[in-house]
Simulated scan of single mutants.
Amino acid sequence: MQNSESNKFFIKNSLLLGVLFLILWWVFPVGGAIDMYFIQPWIDSTGHFPLKNNWYLVEINHKILKHIVIAFYVCVLITWITSFKSEKLKAYRWQLGYLFWVSILSTAVVGLLKAHSAHACPWSMTEQTVAGYIWNFSARNGHCFPGGHASTGFSLLSGFFVFRKSNIKIAYFFLFIGLVLGFTMGWGQMMRGAHFLSHNLWTGWVIFAFNLILYRIFYKKLTT
């Protein structure tokens, strides 16, 4: 029964990811019409992003929110290490370890893709002219895709996979908070000119796909 349920969950979500891949590829191309539409309110007539150094976006969205998520993972790591000594926590060792390591690895995957990406950040792609500005989509200022900051928020999606069988309420809490923080942190970076909307959408896709693959491999460990 467990294998059957696991297969159905994997197939259903694989199909969902497939559909979302096609939507992102065809409807949300990087630097396409939708990206241009949503980036436009945050750029001025000279091609600069007035909110690039905005205190709230830099300190709260970019630093404090990230530090809060990191602090959460530090607590998870400490609890996981403690589980090797505590009998009370021993039963949760796999869940704690999975939550920490898969979350960290998911952000590392995004970071690796970003390091080898030719896509530039929006604030590096505008060139001022006498008539205003133009977009330069060359790859000379790359390494900006997917969205690294958004991955910190989306990494919490790992909790959905960890708890979906043992505690569905906690699982959906992680799903909700992961999506909210991922989009919020990504949107803040978009307002600063650091990323396009498509960068952040692809970040969410990559992290969910990575989680689904590992969950398929370690499903039995999380449900026994």
Score class of each variant (00 low, 15 high):
F145W: 13
Y219C: 14
G178D: 06
N200G: 09
W135P: 00
W135R: 13
G178F: 04
F176E: 06
I217A: 08
F145E: 01
G142L: 09
S155V: 09
F137R: 11
V162P: 00
L157K: 03
S155K: 09
N167A: 09
L175Y: 01
A139D: 15
W205E: 08
F173R: 02
I217L: 13
F196K: 05
G159S: 05
L156Y: 00
R192H: 07
H143W: 08
G142P: 07
M190P: 07
G182W: 03
L222G: 13
L157Y: 00
I207T: 11
H199A: 05
I134Q: 11
A150H: 09
F174H: 03
S155G: 11
F160E: 00
F196V: 14
F196G: 07
M190W: 00
F160M: 07
F145V: 02
F160W: 08
R192W: 07
F173Y: 14
L197W: 06
G142W: 03
A139E: 15
F176L: 15
G188I: 09
S151I: 14
N136L: 07
F196S: 10
F154V: 04
R164Q: 11
M191Q: 15
A171H: 03
N211I: 08
M190K: 12
A209N: 04
V162E: 04
S138W: 06
C144E: 10
R164W: 02
K165F: 04
F183P: 01
Y133Q: 02
Y215R: 03
F183W: 10
K220Y: 06
F196C: 15
I170K: 12
A150C: 13
T184K: 02
A171F: 00
F137E: 10
A171C: 06
T184N: 02
S155N: 12
I170N: 04
Y133M: 00
G142V: 06
W187P: 01
S138Q: 12
A139K: 14
K169Y: 15
P146C: 13
K221R: 10
I170Q: 10
G193I: 14
F218Q: 09
S155T: 12
S158N: 11
L181E: 02
R140D: 14
G178I: 05
V180N: 03
S166N: 10
G159N: 05
L179F: 06
W202Y: 15
K220H: 12
T184Q: 04
A171Y: 00
G193K: 11
R192D: 05
F154K: 00
F208S: 04
L181G: 04
P146R: 08
K169L: 13
T223E: 14
G182D: 01
G178W: 04
S198M: 09
R192C: 12
F196P: 03
S138L: 12
S155Q: 13
I168E: 09
F145I: 03
Y219D: 14
S155C: 14
G159K: 02
F163T: 01
K221Y: 00
N200L: 15
T152Q: 07
F161M: 06
A194E: 13
W135H: 09
F160C: 04
N136A: 10
H199N: 14
A171I: 04
